[in-house]
């Protein structure tokens, strides 16, 4: 669909494991006869060496990591256009803007295709961009799609923004009927120049709930709240601050009653919070311990997530 063929070399820099991103791409690529390098994320210098030594032609990567890899190349004086054989990349697992796409395309000298998927629906592979890059085709032979008003559940008129609802049509192990993805998008009904009749959706425009995504992982504030509430010495108030797609900072007020003047205990508590959040969400947070009463107390629905990221 995007020109990948036998002879291509795909460097898969998504996390392998319970997160579905990496596996699905791995299976798909081997089916087409593409050579897969299961690099996983991280170890940027090695990633770049692999690209150079193995003549990688395609990347599967998150947008934030792609930006980082590109900046490391610049620092090292590597010119991807001359020194590498990269042709294209599949970006997914976190929302990103058209500007980010253009920036990465420009830095690496490649074509970037958006892909869409979610673990509940087999991971990535639900929707994919064709070479025209005007929205993602949803594989309508496998998935039935609707766009509904997130408040009422009623279908919105075609072309209007709403929550994407998907039904699997041929999944054996875990059929899902009218699964509410919480992803906001709209349907593009006009036929695509590429000739495929599968309808397209626009890139994901946001989330209909308070879930947020860090490092490609879906996180709900409730998960973090649950962890904090299970730890002795943490007061009620907390805040999650997001400055990038790569990390989150959790600000926590300590409980006056448990303070005994020992710094060791506080350090231990901080470590416990980090470890337990990591265990619950798969993402290792930064944690700041604050004096009680420092965080704003809001009435009713507290604003727990401060998202400073812009798309």
């Amino acid at each position: 669909m995007t020109g990948a063929e036998r002879g291509d070399i795909l460097q898969n820099s998504m996390t392998y494991g319970l997160f579905t991103g990496a596996f699905v791409m791995h299976y798909g690529a081997e089916k087409v006869g593409i050579l897969v390098i299961p690099a996983g994320p991280g170890n940027t210098e090695r990633q770049i060496n692999l690209m150079r030594d193995f003549g990688t032609t395609m990347l599967h990567i998150t947008p934030s990591y792609a930006l980082y890899v590109a900046s490391v190349m610049q620092d090292k004086g590597i010119n991807p256009r001359k020194d590498l054989k990269l042709k294209r990349a599949y970006l997914g697992a976190e929302p990103y803007s058209e500007e980010t796409r253009r920036k990465i395309e420009d830095m690496l000298g490649i074509d970037i295709y958006n892909c869409y998927g979610l673990t509940e629906m087999n991971g990535p592979g639900v929707g994919f961009e064709c070479k025209y890059k005007q929205g993602l085709h949803i594989w309508e032979d496998n998935f039935l799609m609707e766009v509904v008003n997130p408040e009422t559940g009623e279908p919105v008129p075609e072309g209007e923004i709403g929550e994407l609802v998907l039904t699997t049509l041929n999944r054996e192990a875990m059929p899902l009927i009218r699964y509410r993805t919480r992803d906001l998008t709209r349907i593009i009904a006009e036929p695509c120049k590429c000739g495929r009749t599968h309808r397209r959706i626009t890139r994901i425009l946001g989330r209909s709930d308070d879930m947020f995504i860090v490092k490609g992982v879906n996180i709900f504030p409730q998960q973090i709240e649950q962890v904090l509430m299970s730890i002795k010495g943490v007061a009620q108030n907390y805040q999650i601050v997001l400055d990038s797609y790569d990390d989150m900072t959790v600000k926590v007020e300590i409980d006056k009653e448990i303070f005994d003047g020992k710094i060791d205990r506080l350090i231990k508590m901080k470590e416990e919070i980090i470890e337990k959040i990591r265990s619950a969400t798969l993402v290792k947070p930064k944690v700041e311990l604050l004096e009680p009463g420092t965080l704003p107390v809001s009435e009713g629905k507290a604003k727990r997530v401060i998202d400073n990221r812009t798309i």
Partner: peptide, 30 residues
């Protein structure tokens, strides 16, 4: 999992048998 062979090898064998695979990978002990 990844460039190391351990994860994938077991994964391929378990898939052949048809067992249910939990690809936890190393780390994150809790």
């Amino acid at each position: 999992y990844g460039l190391f062979t351990g994860g994938f090898g077991v994964h391929y064998g378990a898939r052949k048998i048809g067992a249910m695979i939990v690809p936890a990978s190393a780390g994150n002990t809790r």
